[in-house]
Design a protein around this nucleic acid. Structure first.
Lengths: 341, 341
DNA sequence: CTGTTAGCGCCTTCAC
DNA sequence: GTGAAGGCGCTAACAG
C-alpha cells in the first residue's frame, strides 16, 4: 500500500480512502483517484483483508453453524442451501466458513462463539435441520446475544422454528389444489415417520381440504418405512385406498409407489402421488415423480444476504419472524385424474 | 492480550508464546503458563486470528475452488467431498472458504488468486469434476505457481487429472471379481454418454477381464440415455444380452433396470447390475441397487490435510502424483449368479 | 527464562 | 483535498 501511495504520489491515507470507496465522501479529486487506480493496476496491489479486519473489526466473513451436519451433506437439501450461501455471499463480496456442528456435544456452542470471535466473523447462519430440538433454539438464542444470527430451516415442518424456511402452506395448497382440480376427493399423506412434524403437515392438509368443503380421513396418514417393513404400509393403504397422496420425501414416494405396484396398484392410474424435494431420482424413476421443489438455493441466498444487510446496517436480525419462501409444484408422470373422473 | 498479560503479571510476548504452544521451546515455567491460562480463563480472552495473520502471513484458512459448482451441489458427490473438507480442516484447526467457480468466464482464475491473497489463504483445493477440461488443468498449473494447490477429482475417469481421486482400478476389479465369481462371463458397461471417460473405463474393464482369461465384447458398451430415448438402450441390450453390467452412475443404473424390466428382463435373475455412487436412491429403489461406494469423505479429508501438511512443512504439493483412494463394493439386491450357474 | 522493542498492513482522526 | 501520526492486536528479534 505504501508503494502504491508512492507510485501515485499520494499518501497511504488517500489510497485507503480510494480503495474503500470513500473517496467521494472525503472529496478526493477524480484525477487523484485515477492515479491511485493506475498505481494499483501497475503494482498488482491486493489489499489485505486481515489487516483491515484488525483495525475495523470487520472481516466480511460470516459463519455457518449446523445442527446436524451429517444431514447437511447427505441429503441434497443441505447442499442446495449451501449453494445459495455461496452465491449470496459472493454477490455481496463476503465469504463464509463452516464452524462446529452444534449438536455433537453440549459445549460446542461456546466453541462456535470462540471461533467466531477469533476469526472476526460478523454473523452466523444457524442451519436447523433436525426439526424441533429445543436445545438448538436455545443455543440460537444464546448465540444471538453476542452476534447476529439468522436461522434457516430446510426440512418440512409447518410449526418449526421461525427464520427462513419453505412456505409449507403454499406447498400443501398447491398439491391439494392440483388434486382437487383433477377430481380427487380422498387424499392421503405419507412419511417415513409419523411424528410431530408429520402431524403438523397433516393439520395443514386438513385445513386446506376443509376450505374446499372436503374432509380428511385420519386413517389416511401412512407411515412409509424401509423395505423390510414396507408391508405394513401396503396393508394400511389397501384398507383406505385414497386416490391421491402427498409423500415426504421423494425417496419415500419412490418406495411407496414401488411397493404399491407390487400389490397391483398402478400410478397414476389408481393413485396420484406428489413427493417433496425434487431430487434427481424423480426423473430416474418410472413413472417420473411429480414433486414439490423447495426453493433451497433461494432460501440460502436470501438468508445470507439478510444477515449481511443486518450486519452492515447495524440492526439485529429478527429472531421471531417467519420468512416463508415459495417453491414450485413440478408435475411429471405420477399424477393424473381421479379414477372415473 | 495486554490485559491478560497484566492480569497474569507477565508481558504480552509471554502470553503470545503460551497461546501459540511455543511455551515449551521458549522454556517458559509451568507456573507462568498456568498463570497465563488462568488469566485467559478469567478474562474470557480470545486471540484474534486476523491480527496474527497480519504479522505471520498465516491465516489457517484455505480456499476451495471448483471447476463447475453446479455439479458440486447437485450431486451427492460434491457434498460428501465437502463434508470431508470440513472434518479434515477442523481436525487441524483450519477453516476453508469457497472462492469463484473457475469456469464461469475466462478471467475467474485471476479473481481466485486475488481473493486468496486478500484473505491470506494458505492453499487451494481445486475441485475437478468436469473430467478432462484442458483449461482447468492449465488454470491449476498457473495457480500452483503462486500458491499451494491440490486437486481433487471426484467423477469417474481412470485417465483423469492427477491428484486425489477414487481408485478406479480397484473399483473395476472389485466388480469384475464379484461377477466372475458368480459365473458371469459376458459383462457389459453402461453410462449416460459414451465419451472419452467411458472409453477409459471400458479399457480398464477389458484389462481386468483379460487377466482372468475373459474377453470383452465391444458391442457391450451401452449408452443409457434419458427416458425419452431409453428405447435405444433396450434395443442395444437385447441384441447382446450380457448377464452382468457395470453402470455409471446409480441414476443410470436405475433407469436401465427399470427399462429392461418393461422389456421382460428381470434383475437379478437375468441380469446383475452394479451402479456407482451409493446414492440414497439405491435403497429406495427395488431391487435395492448394488453399487460401488466411492470414498468421498475420505478423499476430501485426506486432500485438505495433505494440503495443510504441505503448507506447514513449506513443501509444494506434488502436482503430478496420483492419489488413488479405495472405496467399497456394496452388495444389495441387484446382483446374483449368472443364469444357469 | 522473560521483557523490551520494532514492526506487520491498514484505517482514522486531525491539522494543514 | 491531502498527509502525518497514532494505534488496531499480535509476533519475532534480541537483550538481559
Amino acid at each position: 500500500m505504501r508503494e502504491v501511495a508512492e507510485y501515485a504520489g499520494v499518501s497511504t491515507a488517500t489510497v485507503s480512502l480510494v480503495v474503500n470507496g470513500k473517496a467521494g465522501d472525503a472529496g478526493i479529486t477524480e484525477a487523484t483517484q485515477q492515479a491511485v487506480y493506475n498505481a494499483i493496476e501497475k503494482l498488482q496491489y491486493t489489499p489485505n483483508r486481515m489487516a483491515s479486519a484488525v483495525v475495523t473489526g470487520r472481516s466480511r466473513m460470516v459463519g455457518v453453524v449446523s445442527a446436524l451436519s451429517r444431514e447437511l451433506f447427505d441429503t441434497q437439501f443441505g447442499s442446495r442451501v449451501l449453494s445459495g450461501f455461496v452465491r449470496g455471499a459472493r454477490e455481496r463480496g463476503y465469504h463464509f466458513v463452516f464452524l462446529e456442528d452444534i449438536t455433537r456435544n453440549s459445549e460446542d456452542h461456546v466453541r462456535v462463539l470462540q471461533d467466531a470471535r477469533e476469526m472476526c466473523l460478523e454473523g452466523l447462519i444457524l442451519l436447523i435441520d433436525v426439526g424441533r430440538d429445543e436445545k438448538v433454539f436455545d443455543v440460537g438464542k444464546w448465540l444471538s446475544t453476542s452476534i447476529p444470527v439468522v436461522s434457516v430451516q430446510f426440512t418440512f415442518d409447518p410449526e418449526g422454528a421461525p427464520g427462513f424456511r419453505v412456505n409449507h402452506q403454499n406447498a400443501v395448497e398447491e398439491c391439494i389444489d392440483h388434486f382437487v382440480r383433477r377430481g380427487h376427493e380422498q387424499i392421503g399423506f405419507g412419511a417415513r415417520h409419523i411424528d410431530l412434524r408429520s402431524r403438523s403437515t397433516v393439520a395443514v392438509i386438513e385445513r386446506a381440504l376443509a376450505r374446499r368443503g372436503l374432509s380428511f380421513d385420519p386413517g389416511c396418514v401412512f407411515e412409509v418405512p424401509r423395505w423390510d417393513r414396507i408391508g405394513s404400509f401396503v396393508d394400511a393403504y389397501l384398507k383406505k385406498r385414497p386416490s391421491a397422496m402427498i409423500i415426504l420425501y421423494d425417496g419415500e414416494a419412490v418406495r411407496a409407489v414401488t411397493a404399491l405396484r407390487e400389490a397391483g396398484i398402478q400410478v397414476p392410474r389408481d393413485l396420484s402421488v406428489i413427493g417433496y424435494g425434487d431430487s434427481p431420482l424423480c426423473t430416474d424413476f418410472a413413472p417420473a415423480l411429480s414433486t414439490y421443489r423447495p426453493p433451497l438455493e433461494e432460501i440460502g441466498r436470501d438468508a445470507i444476504q439478510y444477515l449481511i444487510r443486518c450486519v452492515e446496517d447495524g440492526t439485529a436480525p429478527r429472531r421471531d419472524e417467519v420468512r416463508d419462501m415459495t417453491g414450485q409444484l413440478v408435475l411429471r408422470q405420477s399424477t393424473g385424474s381421479a379414477p372415473g373422473h
